[in-house]
């Protein structure tokens, strides 16, 4: 992925001509045309995203198999998650995808102020997501629901000992101790999947910070939008992962 440079618009007007020495400065020499460069980097970005699909796919498959094996444990453990926070985070992330898409549009339309605005909004929404996630993680820590580190079976051996959750799910029966300890597998996968997702968010937010600084200096709005566009693909991909994590972890075990 090549970075863009602040250049004059006359150079960008040369797009499509490959006469040596007359191409815009952001066109790398090993590409015939700017279009070829854009198609190639776009293709490369998609290939990277496919490796990410395979990576998260392993986690999703593990979740599916474990949920089938230890179904009662997974159902009662998932009742510990707060659907309100989960829904709020889903909305935050979807909105951040929208502001990111608008950022790409601003770059394409060469609107520098709008680009900085939309990248900043995406940055803030990304931080909001992590903020909500950390509230949820904190709650898991307080309730001793961090497997291997800070753990207690109490909520599952005796659901009535956990009145907050018990009032929403009065039908939850006490689990046998061997099944109750399997709730750790649910929380392990919960932390692995949402943690990996959060790590992707942190990386994305860091790159966004870099892009905001560059955009303020005039980058990306001179006809060369590859960098913003390909970063957008990454950001939307992370959004898609959450679109699946949310129902699988929070919703499907209500009934």
């Amino acid at each position: 992925m090549s970075d863009s440079t602040a250049i004059s618009n006359s150079a960008a007007a040369d797009v499509g001509h490959s006469h040596h020495g007359e191409h815009p400065p952001y066109q790398r020499h090993h590409f015939e045309t700017v279009e070829q460069q854009a198609d190639t980097t776009n293709f490369a970005m998609w290939l990277f995203l496919l490796t990410e699909v395979m990576f998260f796919g392993g986690l999703f498959t593990a979740y599916m198999i474990m949920r089938n094996w230890y179904y009662p444990a997974f159902v009662e453990a998932s009742h510990q998650l707060n659907i309100g926070w989960g829904s709020a985070n889903t909305a935050v992330l979807i909105l951040s995808s929208f502001t990111m898409a608008m950022g790409v549009w601003s770059a394409e339309m060469r609107k520098k102020g709008m680009l900085v605005l939309f990248l900043s909004l995406t940055f803030i929404l990304g931080l909001a997501f992590l903020g909500i996630k950390s509230i949820e993680y904190h709650e898991k820590w307080v309730k001793h629901h961090v497997p291997g580190l800070h753990w207690s079976d109490a909520s599952f051996l005796n659901p009535a000992s956990d009145p907050e959750v018990h009032k929403d799910y009065p039908g939850d029966k006490p689990l046998q101790s061997d099944m109750a300890e399997k709730t750790q597998m649910y929380f392990f996968l919960y932390f692995a999947m949402t943690g990996m997702h959060a790590l992707h968010m942190i990386i994305g937010i860091s790159i966004l910070g870099f892009m905001i600084v560059r955009a303020r200096a005039g980058a990306y709005t001179t006809g060369h939008v590859n960098y913003v566009e390909n970063f957008g693909l990454y950001w939307h991909f992370v959004d898609i992962i959450w679109i699946f994590l949310f129902p699988l972890l929070y919703l499907i075990s209500r009934h």
Binding site: S97, D239, I252, R254, H255
Partner: peptide
């Protein structure tokens, strides 16, 4: 319930891929 939840998630993914991801 999981079938419906995953069907909605797949629809959302399709919209993101087709339009947001161009």
């Amino acid at each position: 319930n999981p079938v419906v939840a995953l069907a909605i998630a797949c629809t959302k993914m399709t919209l993101v891929v087709l339009f947001f991801m161009h």
